[in-house]
């Protein structure tokens, strides 16, 4: 239920992200989702990848500052109001969200990646309300 997210510190420099994706591509690592939090000087790249531990090791060897963070993937219906209903549930239960990003796929579903202060509380709330959660097998490469 808990998914490993790969976070990478990136300098705000033309081509830096391309250097990273080249490494992942060359090592057969799939990216399911990503987002970048940007500031004036640097960005924080957050990705859900097929082989997080291997990817972290490879990127570290290439000189990147890498961190693995636990996140939860929440699966919601890909239609108007789908996200709102889920967020209402989370805020009603007083779970504070640090950051989140989402990806929608063609099968009428969308996945929202959430980092919260208390992941276990978030999982409990979502499971209690029968929300579908992203499983490791859905994103990890075998």
């Amino acid at each position: 239920m808990i998914i490993k997210q790969l976070s990478v510190f990136l300098e705000n420099r033309t081509g830096r992200l391309t250097e990273l994706t080249a490494i992942l591509a060359a090592n057969d690592i799939n990216i399911s989702a990503f987002s970048i939090a940007d500031t004036a000087d640097y960005g924080i790249l957050r990705m859900i990848v097929g082989r997080p531990d291997a990817a972290a090791e490879i990127l570290r060897k290439a000189g990147f500052a890498v961190k693995i963070t636990d996140v939860v993937g929440m699966i919601i219906p890909h239609r108007p109001g789908g996200l709102h209903k889920a967020l209402q549930l989370i805020s009603d239960n007083n779970v504070a969200i640090d950051y989140m990003y989402a990806f929608a796929s063609g099968d009428c579903k969308a996945t929202v990646v959430i980092r919260a202060e208390s992941l276990q509380k978030l999982i409990d709330v979502l499971q209690e309300h029968k929300m579908e959660l992203l499983q490791e097998g859905d994103v990890y490469q075998v």
Partner: peptide
């Protein structure tokens, strides 16, 4: 790296 946080507020 050991002090790298993936949250903007920490950095």
């Amino acid at each position: 790296e050991q002090f790298f946080s993936d949250e903007v507020k920490e950095l």
